[in-house]
């Protein structure tokens, strides 16, 4: 599918490769700085105040 889309672009293969690299780098940067830090909050992590501290308090 992606290759078919790239075939539609009337540019040299080198620029297609460049475009793919730029898109992958952009996606990676977005994931690393925005998306993943956001979604990680929804993953339960039994540590910190939910772990030993509560056990000690009890």
């Amino acid at each position: 599918m992606y290759r078919a889309l790239l075939d539609l672009l009337p540019i040299h293969w080198f620029f297609k490769l460049l475009l793919v690299i730029i898109i992958l780098a952009g996606v990676s940067f977005f994931c690393f700085t925005t998306l993943f830090p956001y979604i990680v909050d929804f993953i339960p992590y039994p540590f910190g105040n939910l772990g030993f501290e509560e056990a000690v308090a009890q």
């Binding site: 039994p46 772990g51 030993f52 509560e54 056990a55 000690v56 009890q58």
Partner: peptide
């Protein structure tokens, strides 16, 4: 185990 908080006493 995670609930063994007595190690912090």
């Amino acid at each position: 185990q995670p609930e063994q908080g007595d190690v912090l006493l």
